[in-house]
């Protein structure tokens, strides 16, 4: 564990807390893509199949349980909470996310570290996480306006990815045999998807104005 990895995990956790806060405080999920949230729930369940087979640390187990539980809770709220579900932007959230699931799984069958159920699901979750933000970015682009908490949620998610890249650079330089092509290449792709959002986020922050994305 290095400082970049810890910062990455903490910003990831913070992003989820911000999203839960938004849903809890405003009883609204407007601006949030349910499809992206469902993809994240699939990502965590598929990746943490090792929860019962490999023990790494109390920290690791705790974070895995938090990520699985929070992602399922968010999806549950957006689908079933009587007030929250009413604010869901159904007509804006039309990205065909099943396509991403299928493509990621197909890629995992071709590119994996080892041909075992756990490793294929692990690779699948890495590929799916890389593209899971797409329905959310498309929804924001369509609605144009981004409320503060939604903007911060995506900002922290992007920061989490950026810290993970720094973590890999650090590990590559300090650990003798650190090579993780699947995670690193997917991670760079994932971070690149945020570049556009970050650009507009910083402009609005610099001008102290409301975040707006171009149509």
């Amino acid at each position: 564990m290095n400082i970049f990895r810890l910062a990455g995990d903490m910003t990831h956790l913070l992003s989820i807390l911000v999203l839960l806060l938004k849903i809890y405080a405003t009883k609204s999920c407007s601006g949030i893509s349910r499809k992206t949230q469902e993809l994240y729930a699939i990502v965590f369940v598929a990746r943490y199949l090792d929860l019962f087979t490999d023990f790494i640390s109390v920290y690791n187990t705790f974070m895995k349980v938090v990520f699985i539980a929070s992602s399922l809770a968010i999806v549950w709220c957006m689908r079933f909470h009587p007030m929250v579900r009413r604010s869901y932007d159904r007509e804006l959230d039309t990205f065909r996310h099943y396509f991403l699931v299928g493509a990621s799984f197909a890629l995992a069958l071709i590119l994996h570290e080892k041909f075992t159920v756990q490793e294929i699901f692990w690779a699948f979750s890495i590929y799916l996480e890389a593209v899971a933000i797409l329905p959310q970015l498309v929804l924001l682009q369509r609605s144009g306006n981004v409320d503060n908490l939604t903007g911060q949620y995506i900002f922290f998610l992007g920061a989490y990815r950026a810290f993970y890249i720094l973590n890999w650079i650090y590990r590559y330089l300090t650990e003798p045999h650190f090579t993780r092509w699947i995670a690193c290449v997917s991670g760079v792709v994932q971070t690149a998807l945020y570049a556009d959002f970050f650009y507009y986020y910083f402009i609005s922050w610099k001008n102290n104005s409301k975040l707006k994305l171009p149509a």
Binding site: R5, H12, R47, D50, D54, I56, N60, M63, E113, N167
Partner: peptide, 10 residues
């Protein structure tokens, strides 16, 4: 056989 792949990141 020793398990070589340990995914220690989240």
């Amino acid at each position: 056989l020793e398990k070589v792949l340990i995914h220690d990141e989240l």
